[in-house]
Amino acid sequence: MTLLTKRFARMSPAARREALTFYVCILPWLLGFIIFVAYPMFRSLYLSFTNYQIGRTPIWIGMANFERLVRDGNFWQSLKVTALYTLGSVPGSTILAIGIAMLLAQKVRFVSVWRTIYFLPSVVSAVAVAVLWSYVFNPEYGLINSLLALVGIKGPGWVTSEDWALPSLIIMSWWVIGGQIVIYLAGLKNIPNEFYEVADIDGAGPWTKFWRITVPMLSPTIFFNLVIGFIGALQVFEGPWILSGGRGGPNRATLTYMMNLYKQGFELGSLGYASALAWVLFVIIIILTALIIRSSSFWVYYEAKR
């Protein structure tokens, strides 16, 4: 603070006025940041150490929420479900998106038409996607099992089967990759064509070109999307909620972390415990992000600053 006032004192009147204008301009965001970001973060950290039922006052109970959490079967189940979902959804959709983006980068005709088609599922709401797939996955008259029946295969029970419910969610997530395709396509277009031309002269095959040029040049984009993808997948809610009718079933097979958090906080009214869950998720996300960033020095290639 004193540093700031000192700097202000040294400024010219014009610069001082400009600085003031800056603060006035960003005031809405700053207020919003304080009220809806900074305060809630600290508040929920505090609440995670309290017993706080909806409509009551929070009572400090120390680590009790976290001790409860370690013994809570739903917590571990939801963590397992979310981890499996993330491990299925993120790498799968990344590979698919890069693959499709690479096809689109082959100077195909009507790129915008293809892009529109691939982006369409990503435009509609997660709720509509889940409602649609609840029909597609219907074991008796859904699209998938109807098509399988036409070739004489009896399809599984999908969302109604304990073994197939989570894979169903993962498959559904692979359908919504339009955003990633667009990003990877733009990333691929940024790779200078000369790199490939030089490689051609050196007689490099497509495989070598992919691993030696495409992947390194695309790695910053992949890195960024992986981080975003992991953060998003760890918070998945709408799909499992709709497909399991809000129950996380069958037999908790689709009880994701956010579903458990919502149930604890808003169905059972334990806001303190839910805050503890939220902070544990936050810490998991921070650790995971840090790990990806740490590992990035091994596989992300940054062009030397020019």
Partner: peptide
């Protein structure tokens, strides 16, 4: 932009 919303959820509900 990167902050997960659940961590703000309950206090925001409170507000």
């Amino acid at each position: 932009m990167m902050l997960p919303f659940p961590v703000m959820l309950i206090p925001t509900f409170e507000i």
